[in-house]
Design a binder for these strands. Structure first.
Length: 712
DNA sequence: CTAGGGTTAG
């Protein structure tokens, strides 16, 4: 085998450098009066996207992009900037010798007044006829157009353009009007057409129209730009959105607050917090009073980043500008608080909202249920459910489904059943595949395999499609009960019904395989896995072959992990280790754990301080935790042998097992400690923690009876 | 969707 001693040393070495990724704690920063841009951006460049995954695009920072602007328009006086950061600018500009710096126009673009068109009824009907018509060629469309009941005046054309859908028809009409040469095509016709194209996410066509406007000298106004920018955003073409925003300044069009907040949202969506804050501050310095929409953009951004300081900043800004949150801002705030891990604050904010007379809607309640679910506050969540029923607050199927999945997460079987029945009785909503998935999850984690299969049959009867997640829950449940024949049947049916297995389903099949006691069952599961991910099956064969070289394993495993979704990588490794241990391939298990460590799947597995070394196996499967313990003991043996320095205390964390996946880890870890005769004992004061002193370790190492698990 | 910006499920 690949030399175990060096490997254990390597593993050890790697464990030392892996303790940089600590769970963040929002209270880390002291209280601040303004949002600390620099600190928090580092703080919230969170582990969400790994460094090797591509950024949405490579923009130069906005501050670079706006540099020419800042030279000409913005004050470069640092003192003045600093003052602006402390005090919001007053509405009257005190120093008339200095021009007011401006990045946005405080005047919203005026819209032409709507005038009543007496022909509206006829034209709407005609538009509906066109909308419903199923023509086969453009010519056919044009020939119907000839029947237009009124002359195509400027107003009538606008009305038609606004009523035609989908975008193909609106665009055809627009082009038709253009060729008729009835009147010059002004900005508004382009704007209305672009809006229609935006519904169809036709950014290429929108850009084409914009270029046509430029070529023909037709003015692009704020409405044009904001439509282009938001379309680019919806098409995930963020570089395009920024490009058109910059073009505004270059062509001398000052964005108004609508365009400005659209751009804020562009930067927020790609997580460029610093750019958003820079724009925000510049806007504020220009005398802009952000409205509800701008604040909800900021809230959403900080929520996504889990940045509580950012959320506090938004609250404080709203307070100092005397902007009362509206329903949407409250909803965004509640969700953000949940993501920042502040369920208590979310709860009091919700009470404040109700007291201030804002009636919660479905989204409010959904957000709050999610907050409580994540915090595992089942009591609050269930009380909220009672309260929404007695207050007659609006409920929709998403809220029902959110409640159901919360019950699934917290193992609230009876409550889930009640909700599910409620939903079936309800006038407005029927359980859909999401609801069934939640129920399958409930029965799956409660090991109610018969109930789960009943649901599966019920779904077929009611014509509810099983989705990939429901399939995964059911397969997990069947696997745990060793009902492999049913498992294969469910898998086959699922594939036949068009479910495309994802990494989670593969991980689930792997875990089922890891606890199959006989080879026939394991091979059946392997057969399913082969249909879902043949590469993974090939890798398992490599693991089982005696002659496979470590380097080969390393390359192949790397390829598997690269292909896998981020959140499935560690489960893959855990299950593969378990599969190896089940087949007594301990060396392979150690090799896999080592590879998992160097590929960064187990950050924070081992931590060292001057006084204590600790092993944290909470994110490991049972087999992986056993392997890690063996690896740790081997490296400790070596250190004692070489008489190197050891700390006073050693600890191994398995966690208290409150999470449904981690149950049983502590007890099986304890029995493995016993098997190895390792000198650890359950800590009295630390839950889910095994401890040993330096003396324990040293005397164990010196008087140790050789154990096969700990020898080369 | 009455020419433009913000919020719901694993």
């Amino acid at each position: 085998m690949a030399a175990p001693l060096t490997m254990s040393m390597d593993l050890h070495y790697n464990m030392n450098i892996s303790n940089i990724s600590e769970p963040k704690h929002p209270n880390f920063f002291p209280k601040i009066s303004r949002y600390p841009i620099r600190k928090s951006t580092i703080f919230c460049n969170s582990s969400k996207s790994p460094p090797n995954l591509e950024e949405p695009q490579k923009n130069s920072s906005l501050s670079d992009q706006l540099k020419p602007l800042s030279k000409t328009i913005l004050s470069e006086n640092a003192k003045e900037q600093a003052q602006l950061l402390i005090k919001p600018p007053k509405s009257t500009w005190v120093n008339p010798t200095k021009p007011k710096p401006s990045v946005l126009s405080l005047q919203r673009q005026k819209r032409s007044p709507y005038s009543f068109n007496p022909q509206i009824r006829d034209l709407k009907l005609f538009a509906k006829k066109l909308n419903d018509s199923d023509y086969t060629s453009d010519e056919a469309f044009f020939s119907i157009l000839e029947e237009i009941p009124h002359p195509v005046t400027k107003e009538n054309a606008l009305l038609m353009l606004n009523s035609l859908k989908p975008w193909e028809k609106a665009l055809l009409f627009f082009n038709w009007v253009k060729t008729q040469n009835l009147f010059p095509m002004e900005t508004i016709y382009y704007n209305v057409t672009m809006k229609s194209l935006r519904f169809g996410r036709q950014f290429g066509l929108i850009e084409g129209l914009a270029n046509e406007m430029i070529e023909n000298g037709i003015e692009l106004d704020n409405i044009t730009y904001s439509t282009i920018i938001t379309c680019a955003k919806r098409c995930n073409l963020f570089d395009k959105a920024v490009e058109w925003f910059e073009r505004m300044y270059k062509t001398g069009v000052m964005p108004d607050e609508v365009t400005y907040s659209a751009v804020l949202d562009v930067y927020a969506k790609i997580g460029k917090v610093e750019e958003v804050m820079s724009l925000y501050e510049r806007g504020r310095a220009s005398g802009w009073k952000p409205d509800h929409i701008a604040f909800s953009v900021l809230c959403k951004m900080f929520g996504e980043a889990g940045d509580y300081d950012g959320i506090r900043f938004v609250l404080q800004e709203m307070k100092s500008l005397e902007v009362q949150p509206n329903l949407i801002v409250y909803n965004t705030l509640l969700e953000a608080m949940g993501k920042a891990g502040k369920p208590g604050l979310a709860r009091s904010l919700f009470e404040e909202m109700v007291e201030s007379g804002v009636t919660p809607n479905e989204k409010t309640l959904t957000a709050l249920v999610k907050v409580y679910g994540k915090a595992r506050w089942s009591k609050d969540a269930l009380e909220l459910w009672d309260r929404m029923r007695s207050n007659g607050w609006p409920m929709d199927f998403i809220l029902y489904n959110t409640l159901l999945s919360m019950c699934a997460d917290l193992g609230l079987e009876e409550e889930a059943e009640r909700l599910f029945e409620d939903m079936k009785q309800s006038q407005h909503c029927r359980p859909d595949s999401f609801s069934y998935t939640a129920m399958l999850n409930v029965y799956g984690s409660g090991r109610k395999v018969d109930r789960a299969m009943e649901l599966f049959e019920e779904m077929s009867k009611r014509g509810v499609d099983l989705n990939v997640m429901g399939c995964t829950c059911l397969i997990q449940c069947l696997g745990k009960s060793q009902r492999i024949d049913d498992l294969v049947r469910v898998f086959e049916v699922s594939i036949k019904r068009g479910i495309r297995p994802d990494d989670r389903l593969c991980g689930c099949l792997l875990s089922v395989m890891s606890f199959c006691d006989n080879t026939e069952d394991a091979d059946l599961v392997l057969g399913c896995l082969g249909r879902a991910n043949p590469k993974l099956v090939a890798f398992i064969s490599l693991l089982m072959e005696e002659g496979t070289k470590f380097e080969t394993l390393k390359e192949e495993f790397k390829a598997i992990l690269t292909d896998a979704q981020l959140e499935s990588r560690r489960p893959f490794c855990n299950c593969l280790i378990d599969i190896c241990r089940k087949r007594n391939l301990q060396e392979r298990a150690h090799e896999l754990l080592y590879l998992g460590t160097i590929f960064g799947l187990y950050p924070g597995l081992h931590k060292k301080t001057a006084g204590e070394w600790s092993l944290n196996v909470r994110s490991l499967s049972v087999g992986a935790a056993h392997t890690a313990l063996e690896e740790w003991m081997i490296s400790l043996l070596n250190i004692v042998e070489r008489e190197e320095a050891l700390p006073e205390l050693f600890s191994a964390y398995t966690g208290a097992g409150t999470h449904k996946f981690s149950q049983g880890l502590a007890s099986s870890f304890a029995s493995h400690i016993e098997e190895l005769a390792a000198p650890f004992r359950l800590s009295d004061d630390r839950v889910g923690c095994f401890v040993a002193t330096r003396d324990d370790i040293v005397s164990w190492a010196q008087s140790r009876v050789p154990s096969p698990a700990l020898t080369a």
